[in-house]
Computed example of a mutant assay.
Amino acid sequence: MNLSTPASTLDQPAHPLVLSSRVLKEPVYNLAGTKIGHVSDLSIEKTSGRVIYAIMSFGGFLGIGEKFHPVPWSVLQYDIERDGFVVPLDEAVLKDAPSYSAEELRSLGGEDYREALLGYYSRYGMGPYW
């Protein structure tokens, strides 16, 4: 397993760019190798253009009851052998993390959203993106 490969090398060309279409629906694994979800969307800061959060999807059945967890983009590491991302969080940790329905997620992005996520992920040594 190669956890040192940054997410930006997902497409393997000799340049530092990755298309969002190559990231969406990619599986996400915990450090033990268990598939815990997939990347559903990306949260991009308007002013800088930086990807801030990978919106990960967990649970649900056929889209019913599905919850979305914004996870700091910086914690996702691409694993070539698994053909997916690895995060240093297990499913139990993510179940307690801030999560949103699809409708709630569309209305988020303000200061309260940012502070709620920072408050949770800072407990795991993940600082703010700003």
Rank of each mutant, 00 (worst) to 15 (best):
H15R: 07
L19T: 08
A14D: 07
L89Y: 15
L42W: 01
T34Y: 13
W130P: 14
I64M: 11
S4K: 12
V93D: 09
I55K: 06
V93A: 13
D41T: 04
M1D: 13
S74W: 10
R82I: 02
A32L: 14
N30G: 09
T47N: 13
E115H: 08
E104D: 13
E103Y: 02
H15I: 05
L108H: 12
L117Y: 04
E103N: 03
L89T: 03
H69G: 05
G63L: 00
N30V: 06
P70H: 03
P16G: 04
Q12H: 15
I80P: 07
V39A: 00
L31W: 09
G49P: 01
L108F: 10
R106P: 01
Y121T: 06
G33K: 02
Y129K: 13
A14S: 07
Q77D: 14
L10F: 03
L89F: 15
E66V: 14
G84W: 03
V23M: 12
A116I: 11
G84T: 06
I52W: 05
G65T: 08
L94W: 01
Y120C: 02
Q77E: 13
A116M: 10
L19W: 13
V71E: 00
I44D: 05
L89G: 01
S74C: 13
E81M: 06
W130D: 14
G109W: 06
A102D: 07
S48D: 09
Y29D: 05
S99E: 04
M56D: 05
M126I: 11
E111G: 09
R123I: 09
M56K: 06
H69A: 10
E45R: 12
S21Q: 11
L3Y: 09
L118C: 04
I64S: 09
V39E: 00
G65K: 12
K95I: 14
L118Q: 07
N30F: 07
F68T: 00
E115T: 08
L3Q: 10
Y53V: 02
D41H: 07
P13I: 07
G65E: 12
F68V: 02
R114A: 11
Y113C: 02
F68N: 02
S122N: 14
